[in-house]
Amino acid sequence: MSEVFNFRRFWTFFKYDLKQMWRNHFKVALFLGFLPLLLYVVWVICSLSFTREWTAPGIAVRAGFFYLAVLVIILYQARTYGHLTDRRKGANYLMIPASVTEKFTSMMVITLIVIPLLFAGVYFLLDGFLSLVDPHYGSSLVGGAKSLLSRFLQAEIWEDAVMPKSMPNIFFVLVVIGIFVSMVYYLLSGLVFKKWKILGGLLVNYGFSLVLTIFAGLVLTGDRVKDWLERTFNDMGDDQALQFFTNTLNWSTVASVVILVALMTAIYFRIKTIKH
């Protein structure tokens, strides 16, 4: 039997990991998934109590709550496997006879597939259901996002250029990878910091952003760069601008994938080298 990866052993470990997660952390994802229903009930009760009218939360409020829920899901990743830094619980986990690759794969599947699916599945299902049963509720979040995107794509900001049909997919992939990067980042933060796992991740993120902003500011305000930017953008036609925009999105996607892989590699080595 391979010491690196054995599918049977992985499956056994994955089932075990799922059970532990169900017992400890999936309930948080599930609770956040039920947020549309909770928001709706509270909203309707308040509305009936104060104005004696049946109203439902508008799409802007719901979008705001969804954003907050996604933020909590992302930050909560610091807690899901945070017990690995605990001497007692971490030792139990490390001493389970499964390879680092199997433990890492299970961790990634749970973090990047199971938890988002559980959360988003329940969230969108309830949101869609409420939009169907209550006319006051309006369009569902998915419907709203689609219409917003379509309006953006049809906007007459490009006179001489046609928006590529692949643009929605590029956007979608970039957003999903961005969320994955954030989730994996906070997962790593939970594996690195023994205490203050979320705060530690936030502070490092803040510090890194600050340094990057200062660096970018210094570079972009340099005379040579300023001249180059002015020359490039002033002479740009609509089709060139659109091409530049599309290229920027594509390169952002590539950069996000590189960052995601780097963070995942760091997690793999953290599991491999963690000591108690």
Partner: peptide, 30 residues
């Protein structure tokens, strides 16, 4: 930490972790 060696050994720490599970379930799963 090769799985075959981990399956051949057991380390019991001086302080053990309380788990939110019945003892029998913990044993069955582990």
């Amino acid at each position: 930490r090769e799985p075959s060696l981990l399956a051949d050994q057991f380390y019991l720490a001086d302080e053990v972790a309380p788990v939110h599970a019945k003892a029998i379930c913990f044993a069955r799963e582990h």
